[in-house]
Design a protein around this nucleic acid. Structure first.
Lengths: 205, 205, 205, 205
DNA sequence: ACGTAACCGAGACGGTACGTCAAGTCTTTCG
DNA sequence: CGAAAGACTTGACGTACCGTCTCGGTTACGT
């Protein structure tokens, strides 16, 4: 006996509509911004009835989260073999700088930045969505940094008593904050500096 | 020569209404959250005409920004002599840990956290407001950390070639991100660790 | 080929709402008067969204015009066989006096008078609505008088060179003006007198 | 002890403001129509504070009524000796036709027609103002017709048993209704016909 | 092969809040 | 102290979207 509240029959779902909704949602967020993106607008642009959106998602933010996850997966596939893993050349600083430079590029691509920023903002204020955003998008990425740091610990390049989950925030969070809150400019030089400071510390040796 | 679009005659403004609007706005954000706080609701709660709000502010976010700045100023005054300055006991680590612990407390006070979070969220998506939020609230506070770090540089506790404006982000941004995006728990232990990592670096010495 | 500005899909329209709106509009005009009747009030009383009114009508006056036309049609149906036709007993004076006496009664029934007066007033100042009011309500009624006068001409009771469309105004317009502009009292005696004066003229014979 | 609600000290009243308000009110009604004429607009156009209007009048309609009365008086003065009286040449039909032709001209002069129509409309719906409009503008004019008819009765041109107050409506009201409600065109020929029909009646002699 | 049960596009529905406008009141400033 | 200026409270306006609820139509099984 299926629950009354469960999603409708998934097997009959129109893949065409799903794709059109994702495309419309991402396009609208990029074009007019998140606040002016409306469910009504997404439905119209996707050539879809409003109810088709409400049948499968609970809110505008929900749609966008799925659309963005879908986008990320597609991007990952397009990127080929090692889609999302931090290289391990043995040179920790160089590896981190490389990944952060790629992130800088990504953050400046409007197609990626607009929905990402919108979801982050919504997550700040809507805790439930925020937790899903973090769990499905942010944490997996952070975990890659943690893995790389653990590897560095085994190689003796990072002290053994360091908590990798916290350590990674030393260079990731500053970039995140500058980007989200416009508290400063973003550049390769900046992220390189973050890695240097974080690895070597501020105090004289 | 007053511009046609400038705000109306400020000298005639009702201080009573201004205060009531601030109080109502902060109270509502705290009680029902930012999205459910409406201009109409603020006006009603403040016993003020809606037009009186639109006469002086352009949006809900604008009102809240001013209300929150006002709150901060009052809090600063109430805090007495050294309202917003980081102590300088000579022990950099201890001083930073102390201030961050105070910040942790503040971030857990709902009266302060709700509007702050709302403004941060709005600023993420509304760049114009975001820049004002940063310029009027965030940067002044960050500058205090920069000052303390400069003092530490003079005392030889921080390397001279370090850029204080970037260095401070090593411990401030992680806390900010955990708070804003719920990427992890917040505690005294956590901020203490951040300061230790940031000052000493991750690499073995 | 439907015009872009045409009313929405009429076949899907809710008859229930339409009726409720008419009832509410007529009731409110009767109770609080036309100027204090608001679209918002009609919607609330009808248990209907405001947008449902604006979807189908352009203004308060438009709603009221349709509501009143609907009322007239219902009254006509209720009146039975010969709903709106002037009797033709052969005695022109008696027939006209009878109809005018009925009109006097109608003009003193508040349920009928309030919306009628409101529409007339609006029509005086809003030419577009005025023309519709006249075309759909006033002229059809006047035409009945013209018909009766033509019949009287064929019977030799009215001179053949008389223009019936003007002639009818001799007894209809005075009543209309007294009612609309409060220029004098209204009674059976008054309308009887009008008919006598109009048929026989003022000059001695 | 003066009542709180009495008008303020009339002797100190600014004639300059009073005139400017009248001019502004009449101009605005002519230019944008009655509904779009606002007290705020009148005050602005007259270079006067809004309160100066509310001090001396109770409503927009009140202002306009006084403005129109003032205009009528000025017009009357300008017209010279016998400002408002119906000529008495002994030929009743000719005298009435002449006056009605002049009225036709007046009704087509926008400077006169716009405020007049506006006041009539307001009077239809606002009984209190309507009665003042009628008493101060309409009835005095009707009385002139009544006087002329009484004179005709003394001359034996109108039957003695005719009530002049009702008789005059036979030709005045039709013109009024056509003008107010757009129920038909207005012309010299039309008003001439009205006089003929009214004096001679519709029935064959 | 055919009913019947779902999804689908469309869009009307009852609502909430928006941002604007004007009403009429109240307060401040000036002559 | 009257008048100008204009800020105030109030409340209707007409618009934009919300999330729900029909409406036909078109698949896509299940018997």
């Amino acid at each position: 006996m299926a629950s009354k509240e469960s999603t409708p029959d998934v097997s009959r779902r129109s893949e065409r509509s799903r794709r059109a909704i994702f495309d419309a949602a991402l396009a609208l967020v990029g074009e007019v911004g998140y606040p002016k993106t409306t469910v009504e607008g997404i439905a119209a642009r996707a050539g879809v009835g409003k109810q088709t959106i409400y049948r499968w998602w609970r809110s505008k933010a929900d749609v966008l989260l799925d659309a963005f996850l879908d986008l990320s997966e597609q991007a990952a596939e397009a990127a080929g073999q090692a889609p999302y893993a931090i290289p391990d050349t043995g040179d920790l600083a160089a590896d981190l700088k490389g990944v952060l430079r790629a992130t800088v590029d990504e953050l400046q691509d409007p197609a990626f930045a607009a929905p990402s920023r919108a979801l982050a903002a919504e997550g700040v204020v809507n805790e439930e969505l925020g937790r899903r955003f973090v769990a499905r998008l942010l944490l997996p990425q952070l975990e890659l940094y943690a893995d790389r740091l653990r590897s560095a610990q085994r190689a003796g390049q990072v002290r053994a008593d360091i908590d990798p989950r916290i350590a990674l925030e030393l260079f990731v969070s500053p970039l995140a904050q500058r980007w989200l809150q416009h508290t400063g400019p973003i550049s390769y030089e900046y992220t390189d500096t973050l890695v240097d400071y974080a690895l070597n510390g501020l105090a004289p040796r």
